[in-house]
Design a protein around this nucleic acid. Structure first.
Lengths: 182, 182
DNA sequence: AGATAAACGGAGTGATGACTTCGAATATAT
DNA sequence: ATATATTCGAAGTCATCACTCCGTTTATCT
């Protein structure tokens, strides 16, 4: 692949990440404009809009997975888990697309995105079980429902665009529900 | 207003409720087709698509408010509160649009829908404070965050379309977080 | 430096969907 | 029953958007 092509591909991905983050229904022209390339160039790299969306989605999921893996190295698993949870929800509030990504990863999406979704979920599972072993999270909570809770909190925060104070208080309620049973 | 006109208006509302419940991006033609009227008739009653959506939204919110008010009469405020919460989340899972309605009611939306949103929220507040007085819900939880939690759970359940078992377990975690602090 | 294969941009194209127009149909008042 | 004012529906209009075509530019290889 020629250097300028690889370069443009990266610019398009960055632009798409930004544009679709603001509004998932944005047009391909918007992406091209922000990337500073022609529309045809976008379509040369991503033959359909779906493929472009999927590439962005995959990128986001991989980023989240990396963040989770990074935190998994922490020596305070409880703190690591709650920090990750909080960060995902907080970022969703401003970056619309993360919560979309999280849900889309479950449902539709092509193979790449699905694989990325699985990777992300595995990393999350690692964080959760470590926190449970450390006694920071109740042991009877399964990954599925805790993950669902995170998605829900993200989407709720995004859609209702909550004030930070309310968001934090909401997270407080959730965290109390996740605390070990006495 | 002529009888057939009022009749058609009702049919359109019912059809729109159904169609937008399945897919919020459905076209006006779809609504007209299901209602069994021409497109022009839809536009005569609702000059823009936005107004039609808003009418549906308002209807949904009013239904929820009525349900809340009905439950407020119960002699077990704790049970009434949790039943309402559960019902809203469960129905969202199948009827896509309720959670949209709940979030839209907070943010955008015209005056009618906003008023309906306030009504719904007030009814919810009544349910919550009664449950708190009865000692079924922790007293330091404010309406804002509990409402946010309900919206989040709804949207999460809708988007991820959770299996009922996982949904119920997720609700279990939430309810433990809402329990009075010991 | 010059050849050439790859990549580029912008002007199309076709489909979709919100909204309008206008002649036909129908409910209500006399 | 008939007049008429209101409502109806099908065929349009216009804008938007995903996607294509093709003449021009540019990176890389010798």
């Amino acid at each position: 692949m020629r250097a300028d092509a690889r370069d443009n591909r990266a610019r398009i991905m960055t632009a798409a990440d930004d544009v679709f983050g603001r509004s998932p229904s944005a047009s391909t022209d918007d992406v091209a404009r922000l990337a500073g390339v022609g529309i045809a160039t976008v379509f040369r790299h991503f033959p359909t809009k779906t493929e472009l969306l999927e590439a962005v989605l995959t990128l986001r999921l991989e980023r989240l997975r990396d963040r989770a893996l990074e935190l998994a190295g922490s020596d305070d698993p409880g703190k690591a888990f709650f920090e990750f949870f909080t960060q995902v929800v907080s970022e969703s509030a401003s970056k619309l697309a993360i919560s979309e990504a999280l849900t889309a990863a479950g449902a539709a999406a092509g193979e790449d995105a699905r694989a990325a979704g699985r990777g992300m979920r595995e990393a999350f599972n690692g964080l959760l079980t470590a926190a449970q072993r450390a006694g920071a999270v109740r042991s009877d909570a399964e990954t599925a429902e805790v993950y669902a809770l995170m998605i829900g909190a993200s989407r709720g925060a995004t859609a209702a665009n909550l004030e930070p104070r309310v968001r934090d208080r909401m997270l407080g309620l959730i965290y109390d529900g996740l605390a070990p049973r006495s």
